[in-house]
Amino acid sequence: MITVEKLSKHFGEVNAVDGISFEVVEHENLILLGTSGCGKTTTLKMINRLIEPSSGMITIDGKNIHDQSPELLRRGIGYVLQNNGLFPHYTVAENIAIVPQLLKWDSKRIEKRIAELIDKLHLSPDQLKVYPNELSGGQQQRVGLARALVADPPVLLMDEPFGALDNITRSKIHAEFKALDELKRKTIIMVTHDVQEAFELGDRICLMDKGKIIQIGTPAELLFKPANDFVSSFLKEQRLQLEFRAIRIKDIWNLLPHTKEITEVVSLSANMDIWSGLEKFKYHQADHLNITHGKETRAIGFEQLITAFYKYQSSRAHE
C-alpha cells in the first residue's frame, strides 16, 4: 500500500532523514520508533507532504504522491496528532465534519457517518454540540481519531497520538484501538517513542536512529534477532515486559499442558499476547481460563502459562 524509496530530508547541514526505504502492506500497522530527533516524525510528514523531501520517492497504492496536489492527497489520508489538533472554536461535530464537507458530502450522509463513529469510539451524541475544551484528554483524542476516520481513508498516519494522555487513559484507549473494526481495514503508520506502545500496537516496528533505519521487523524479531548492539541496548531496560507483549499464546501452545476445557469458564484466543492473557486472570479472578487454538481448547492456569512462557524464553535464548 505504501512504498518509501531512498527518502531523504536535509535541513541545512543536518540529515534529518538519510536515504531510508521501506514498504507497508495493506492493513498493516507499522510503528516508527526511536528517540527524539531520529527522523520518525519528519518521515511521517513527508508521506502526506506536510514536509517536502530533499530526494527519494513515496507511492501510495502504486501512485506517486507528487502526481497530485498536497490538498487532494491529504483528503485521502487520515492524520492524527498528539495534541489532537482540534479547532477550539468549532464544536465536536464541526471538527469531525471538516473533510466530508471539503469532499462535498450532503448533510445527511455526514450526520449518519458521525453518529456511526461516535458510537464506535464511545462518545455521547450530546458531546457533538460541545467544544473541545469541555472534553477530557481521552475524549479529545477520540474526537481527533473520529475526524481522521470520518471519510474512511485507506491510509492513517498517527504522530504520537496517545503521548499526551495519562497512563490509565492511554491503556484504555490502546485496548479500544486494538478492538476497533474501523482500524482493522486501514493501513497505518504510527510514530511513537514509547517502546511498550510500539510492541503492543505494531504489526512491525521500524527502529530509527540519526535519520537511518536500524532494523525493521516484527516485535519478536527485534527482541530475539536484533540486527546489532544498538537494537539490543535500546530494548534492554524493558526486555522482560516486551517479551510478554511480543510472544503470543499460540507461540507457546506446544509447551502448555493438554488439559480439557472447563464449562462456565471464560474463553480466550491463543492469538492474544502473553501479557494480555495474564491480565485476564486478574480481571476474571479465575484459577483457570479456556484458551482456544484452532479447533482445540484447553483449560490453562496462571502458573502453567507463566511456566510455558519461561520455557519458551529459555529455548529462544539458546537458539
Rank of each mutant, 00 (worst) to 15 (best):
T263M: 10
K260N: 15
L255N: 08
K250E: 12
R248G: 00
A270N: 03
V265Y: 10
H258S: 12
S276L: 13
P257I: 10
K250N: 07
L278R: 13
V265G: 04
K250H: 10
S276E: 11
L268H: 01
K250F: 09
T259F: 05
N254M: 06
A270V: 05
T263H: 09
I262S: 07
M272L: 15
K260P: 02
A270K: 06
H258W: 08
I252N: 00
S269M: 09
V266E: 15
E261T: 02
I262P: 01
T263V: 12
I262T: 10
E279P: 01
N271T: 12
N254V: 00
L278D: 05
T259V: 04
S267Q: 07
S276I: 01
E279Q: 14
S269Y: 04
I262K: 09
W275F: 15
S269R: 08
I252R: 03
D273W: 04
I249R: 02
K250L: 05
I252F: 02
E264K: 13
L268W: 03
I249A: 02
R248Q: 06
W275D: 11
L255E: 02
L278P: 04
I262Q: 12
G277Q: 08
L255C: 02
K260D: 15
D273K: 08
L255F: 10
E261C: 03
K250C: 10
T259Q: 08
G277L: 00
M272W: 06
S276D: 15
W253M: 00
T263F: 09
I274L: 14
N254S: 08
T259N: 15
L268S: 03
L268I: 07
V265P: 02
E261D: 13
E261I: 01
E279W: 01
S276K: 13
I252C: 05
G277R: 08
S269E: 11
T259P: 03
K260S: 14
L278K: 06
D273L: 00
I249F: 00
L268F: 04
W253Q: 01
N254Q: 14
M272V: 07
V266N: 07
S269Q: 09
E279V: 04
W275H: 14
L268T: 07
N271C: 09
R248T: 07
E264R: 11
W275P: 02
G277P: 03
M272D: 08
L255W: 06
W253Y: 03
K260M: 09
D273S: 12
K250A: 11
D273F: 09
N254K: 10
I262G: 02
M272F: 06
S269D: 14
V266T: 12
N254Y: 06
E261N: 06
G277S: 09
K250M: 06
V265H: 11
W275R: 11
S267L: 10
P257D: 13
R248C: 07
K250G: 04
L268N: 10
W275I: 05
E264C: 10
A270L: 13
S269N: 10
S276A: 14
L255K: 11
V265A: 15
